[in-house]
Design a protein around this nucleic acid. Structure first.
Lengths: 229, 229
DNA sequence: GATCACATTTGTGTATACAGAAACCGCAAT
DNA sequence: ATTGCGGTTTCTGTATACACAAATGTGATC
């Protein structure tokens, strides 16, 4: 049935279960599969074009990620995002990021953060360049997170952070940040990066604390605004 | 993260995948399946008495738990525990527990912690009563953790903590604590409990920080001692 | 005796068949 | 109109068969 030429390590040797996982995960993260959406094994297997076995494996991973919950007897459904759950997620996020930043400030190689610093200085200009600029800005944040992860050198901590970021991606979708907030966030990031470069864990931790506090306020405000409209 | 409670009525026969998961997990945690042990699907499926499909589901969950890693091409193996990984785990643990304790001190209902306090006061006596006493002591710690989890009321945070505790169980096995350390730990717990009762998040957090610091030192010392013998 | 080609074995990834349980529907009885 | 009951349908959980890849063994050839 599967006459794909050899398992090319780089190309498209994705297993069916992997394809199913990525597709479902992507659809959940970008909101195509809305919270509460009920999904059935056969239905989804058919839609994605894999059989039930790999689909079940994919769903098991999504459940482990906390993106999906099994329903008694009747398939599974996409977890929903309540305002309470956002605050709860941020309580976890704060603990993890503060610790990560603290360790990064202790262990970092300054060079990559110097580069990031220069990029973040130009971030406000970036944010004047419309959608493309905003996209570039988010890419910058990703780079920053990668640099922190690399500096932390702790698979447990980085793994936990990655799980949190998965949920954050969904939250960002339903609470689009406004440009003013993004500009403020860029300044906050700059402060954090400076603290990391300076090798000052305590300053970096506190700057992160504040950044996340503001971030949560902004998200909650955006959601409240949306729901009142 | 499975919600098996909803799925399984009391006494109902466990699903094969659930049986396989619990058995393998138990065997890994108590060291029966040693770190590095190579496991093959067919072999394990036969041994446990389930077919390959549920076994694969069980293994997928173990991989998500971080207890098992897939090997390139050839089966899977139990993750090993290096000294480095213990320190790394404690870096994550510290972030989570400090946050949890902080929140618990803020949100707690004092009553259950008052009860725990009384129990912990008698802990030193317990530790003079041999193996049974030690066992009772560990049960007390579990109660404390449950009380904290309940007070925290944050599924994300509690979930992350549970994952950490899974790995701690393995570490405890290979670094048996001595009675002196346990007595000191009991005193540290008492301090934490008092801070929670007093509703003093900062004091509780710092007491936790110190407790975990001592705990890590003790674990590392015990391992060093073992490896030198 | 060494090396290469090829067959055999072993093991994973996937599809599918089958059984049992839960939800659904219609009908009857109150 | 509502509730209780049985048959039907649908869906999951499990076993198993098959395909393909990797590792291993074996024999022929030099």
């Amino acid at each position: 049935m599967y006459t794909e030429t050899a398992m090319l390590r780089l190309g498209a040797p994705l297993r069916a279960s992997e394809r199913a996982y990525r597709q479902l995960r992507g659809e959940i993260l970008n909101g195509l599969l809305a919270p509460g959406a009920a999904l059935l094994e056969v239905e989804q297997a058919e839609r994605i074009g894999v059989s039930r076995t790999p689909l079940r494996e994919a769903v098991a991973r999504l459940i482990a990620d906390g993106l999906v919950v099994g329903r008694r007897g009747r398939g599974f459904e996409v977890t929903d995002i309540s305002v309470d759950s956002i605050s709860e997620l941020y309580e976890l996020r704060q603990a993890l990021e503060v610790q990560a930043i603290r360790l990064a400030a202790t262990r970092r190689e300054p060079a990559p953060f110097q580069e990031l610093r220069e990029a973040f200085v130009t971030a406000p200009e970036l944010l004047d360049q419309g959608d493309l600029g905003v996209h570039r800005y988010y890419a910058l944040i990703d780079e920053f997170e990668d640099a922190v992860d690399a500096a932390v050198e702790n698979p447990f901590l980085v793994g936990a952070l990655r799980a949190v970021r998965t949920h954050l991606a969904r939250i960002r979708r339903l609470a689009r940040s406004n440009p003013r907030r993004l500009r403020a966030a860029a300044a906050e990031h700059l402060l954090i990066i400076d603290a990391i470069i300076a090798g000052d864990p305590s300053l970096a931790a506190h700057a992160t604390h504040i950044h996340l506090h503001q971030s949560l306020l902004s998200v909650l405000a955006a959601i409240k605004e949306d729901s009142e409209r």
